[in-house]
Structure formats: C-alpha cells, structure tokens
C-alpha cells in the first residue's frame, strides 16, 4: 500500500512536470489552429458517462489548465442518460452537447445513421493502441475509454475464483453480486461475450448460483464493501482498484478466460454549438497528460507509451472484445436471455 502510494505521488509529480512542459512548448501546429478556433467558440459542453466522477473531473481540470479561455461545462451522468438527452436535443434541434462520451457502441452507430455526429480525424491518435485506432472507417466516432470487466472480490476471500467458469463452482453459490445488462453497458457486453464463449448453459448455471443483481456494475463494489456478497461478476476493473487504493477491502481478479473489454466511445455532434472545442477535447484525450491521469485512476491508458497503473499494459492483460458487426441484435438477445434465466 505504501509502495503504491509513493509511486502514485511520483507519477502525479511527473504528470505535473510534463503538463508544465507542455504549456511552455505548444503541442503541435494543428492543435494551435484548433485551440484558436475553440477559444473563439469560448465554451465546451461535455456529456460524459464514461469514467467515474473523479477521473472525468481530473481530465476536465487538466484541459482547463492547458487551454485557458474555454469555459468547460461537464455533465457527468450515466451513459444512457446522456445519450437519451442528446437524442432529445437532436429531436428538438437544440443541441448543446459538444462532446459525447458513453460506453455503448450502439449509441454511435445509431447517431451516425442519422448523420448526427461529424467526421474528423483527431490529430494525435498516433499513439493509440493499434486495435482501437480506426473504429469507424468514416471517423465519426473514436475511442474514448477502455473499460475492463473482470471479477472483483472482498479482501477476505483468500482464494478468489480464477475464471468466469470458476464462478459456477459450489463455494460461490449465494456469494455473487453482479449488475444488470438492462442497466449497465459493461454487464451487457459481458453477457454477450459469455454467451459467445459458453452459450446459454452458462447463464442457466449462473442463475443457480443465486447472484444478487444490482443495476450498474458499480453495485458489485458496494455489495462487497458492505459485506453483503463477497465476489463480483462483470465487475468494473478500474473502479474496484481505485476503491482498493482508497483503503477499501477489495481487490480484482483478471479471469483466465479473459477480461471482457468494452470500449467507451466519443463523438462530436454535427450540430454541436462548439465543434472545434469538442474536437480539441478529443485530441486532448489522446495526450500524455490524460493517459497519465487515467493511469493514476487505474484506467487503461489511451497511449501505448504510458503504462497503466501497477505496470500493467494492454498486452499484459488477457482480454476479449465482442465483435461489433451484429452487436445490437446480440445485446438485445443477451438481455432477453438474461431475463429468461436470471430475473
């Protein structure tokens, strides 16, 4: 714990130094032009559901420090809520959002279909992990967050389940807590992945374990910290680790049969009132500063040159990501099956 804290401080200091350095020497010519345009627009409205409150606030603060003269308004609500809100804004032709960041790919496919998000190429996407560099060939949406879904467990659990399969073992009956795919995009993508891997039999067996089903997968942490349950399935990797560092008796296990990786995405609405500011923010997401902030908050970084907290990297973690081609149907089916077998 002490080690970790010290490293933490060091890293924070490093980030501060880098940030100072960056302020002295402007990033790039492209950035300068964009910054000037954004400054002219004067404001930036962020509608973000990716990242928990603290992390996204840290990112916002860093942006404000780096680009003074732009008023940043952050609306941090659940992904589905900010999405619904943007949809309502589009419907009423009253778009306020300059940068949407949610955890659900379907949002963007839908928005793209109605030409509600604009194409642009972020200028410094070069250090993004190659697999996530060009998600949309038309460049209307981009990666905004990398979210890992794993197992988490109470510190009292000495031998946590090593895999998703192990969760079905007898000792974990009545001990499991999880979120609902109807409420949580991460849990939904876990259900899709698990059905791909093990079929509906897994869900049936999972139901026999009598899991406690919350809404968001953040609820797994709550149940573990309160002692109501001891093991979380479909649990948030980064948030659990952040809670651990805060001093809470919790830890994560990366399942041998793959952490489920779900991408958070981001886009600038076509009718955004401050489109340049929105684009500037997207660019900023791929900066070293942001990746360092992410690392500090136990999130996977968006740059290959900035390691995650505790020295992890995308390569060191065994992960699986659902194919995107037929995702909408698979999510709908997954939720239906979940309701059939579990609640």
């Amino acid at each position: 714990m002490t080690m970790l804290n010290r490293r933490h401080v060091l890293m924070a200091g490093a980030a501060g130094l880098v940030a100072t350095a960056w302020r002295i020497s402007p990033a790039s010519a492209a950035d300068d032009v964009l910054y000037a345009a954004a400054k002219k627009e004067g404001a930036l409205n962020l509608y973000w559901g990716s990242y928990e409150q603290k992390t996204i606030e840290d990112i916002r603060d860093a942006f404000k420090a780096k680009y003074p003269g732009i008023e940043v308004n952050l609306l941090r609500q659940a992904s589905q809520t900010v999405y619904t809100r943007l949809r309502l804004e589009i419907q009423n032709d009253a778009v306020q959002c300059d940068s949407l960041g949610t955890t659900n790919l379907l949002h963007y496919q839908e928005l793209k279909k109605i030409n509600a998000i604009q194409a642009f190429e972020p200028s410094n996407a070069g250090m993004l992990p190659a697999a996530f560099r060009t998600l949309d060939p038309d460049n209307t949406y981009h990666v905004g967050a990398i979210s890992l879904t794993t197992i988490n467990q109470s510190s009292k659990v000495t031998e946590p389940p090593k895999s998703w399969q192990a969760l079905l073992d007898a000792p974990w009956a009545g001990k499991i807590t999880t979120g609902s795919p109807a409420y949580s995009g991460d849990v939904a993508s876990w259900v899709v992945a698990i059905r791909k891997k093990y079929g509906d039999d897994y869900l049936k067996a999972f139901a026999k374990q009598k899991p406690k089903v919350g809404q968001s997968n953040v609820d797994t942490v709550t149940d573990i910290l309160s002692g109501e349950r001891t093991v979380g399935s479909g649990a948030p990797f980064s948030y659990s680790l952040a809670q651990k560092v805060a001093g809470n008796p919790i830890d994560v296990t990366i399942p041998e049969d793959d952490a489920i990786l779900n991408l958070g995405l981001t886009a600038v609405p076509t009718k955004a009132p401050h489109p340049n500011a929105g684009k500037l923010f997207t660019d900023f997401l791929y900066s070293v500063e942001v990746s360092q902030i992410l690392s500090r908050n136990f999130w996977p970084t968006l740059r290959t040159d900035v390691p995650w907290a505790e020295g992890r990297t995308l390569e060191s973690v065994k992960w699986y990501r659902n194919p995107v081609d037929n995702l909408a149907a698979e999510v709908a089916e997954g939720i239906a099956k979940w309701k059939e077998y579990i609640v």
């Binding site: 409205n45 928990e52 409150q53 603290k54 308004n73 609306l75 968001s216 953040v218 709550t222």
Partner: peptide, 18 residues
C-alpha cells in the same frame, strides 16, 4: 445542466459513480 445541477441529481450521479 452542469451549471444548474441540484443536490439530488448530483448525489444520484455520485451514487452512479460509486
């Protein structure tokens, strides 16, 4: 909106953020 947030929505968002 970010500028017109009230306590309950804020609390709910914090809860959402765990």
């Amino acid at each position: 909106s970010p500028k017109t947030n009230v306590m309950t929505t804020l609390i709910y968002n914090y809860k959402d953020g765990g």
